[in-house]
């Protein structure tokens, strides 16, 4: 039996012209991408230099005053990139990173998907509930850590009330350490899911554009 596939000419033309399935949409504006990669680089240096200050690796034999300088300088850079992202959110009226109650309602379904109890993730806005929780906690914890960093930098000259509130310098160090561990535990999850869940999202963080599959083509 012979089968003939008849396609309309304009459709054929469109398909031939395009090598892409789905539609191309702008997902990450320039300032978001600048923030993302700038913050990534700065935070990596902040975390690594912080760990070196916490427990110096003898084989590196780094000059400690320089490590401390790098830690502080890149801490300020990170804050600067974060300020760019916050300003950009206000300008574009972008609330995609702020978790809302309806987002969190889908969290159990998302967990079912993560634990292979569902075949597809629940519907979400730009980011799913897990992403929102992690990204938002990073913002909050980074601001908290930076504040505690300032408190330890000033050595009780300013912001003495913070020392008293949290119970001294050792507790302050401990809080910063735990925050670092939180970052170190969640960043690999972020990288892993970016690479394996939707690679076009990762592409969007470089080019700005994301390919969205049409709903009937899933």
């Amino acid at each position: 039996m012979k089968h003939h596939i008849k396609l309309r000419k304009p459709l054929m033309k469109q398909l031939k012209k395009s090598n892409v399935k789905g539609t191309i949409v702008q997902s990450q504006p320039l300032w978001v991408r600048i923030f993302h990669w700038g913050f990534t680089a700065s935070l990596t240096i902040v975390i690594l230099s912080g760990l070196q200050l916490h427990k110096p690796a003898s084989f590196l034999a780094l000059n400690f005053s320089k490590v401390l300088t790098a830690h502080i300088v890149f801490g300020w850079f990170s804050l600067g990139f974060l300020a760019i992202r916050i300003a950009d959110s206000f300008i574009r009226r972008d609330d995609s990173l702020i978790p809302k109650i309806q987002d969190l309602r889908h969290f159990p379904q998302l967990m079912s998907y993560c634990f292979f109890l569902r075949s597809s993730p629940p519907p979400a806005r730009k980011y799913n509930s897990g992403q929102l929780l992690i990204y938002f906690s990073w913002f909050v914890l980074f601001l908290l850590s930076s504040f505690l960093g300032l408190v330890s930098y000033w050595q009780g000259e300013h912001l003495i009330w913070v020392w008293r509130l949290i119970g001294g310098f050792q507790v302050l160090r401990w809080t910063k350490f735990i925050t670092t561990i939180y970052f170190l535990a969640t960043i690999p999850i972020h990288i892993y899911l970016s690479l394996t869940e939707d690679i076009s999202r990762l592409q969007a963080m470089v080019t700005g554009y994301e390919r969205k599959s049409p709903p009937n083509n899933r």
Partner: peptide
């Protein structure tokens, strides 16, 4: 899941548009 996600979200090679057969005409 990883294979499926990568196939679904990555770009196909040029001149190989993925098509879904909607209707088959028999003559």
């Amino acid at each position: 899941r990883i294979q499926k996600n990568l196939l679904k979200t990555s770009v196909k090679a040029q001149h190989r548009p993925a098509l879904k057969k909607v209707k088959t005409f028999h003559q």
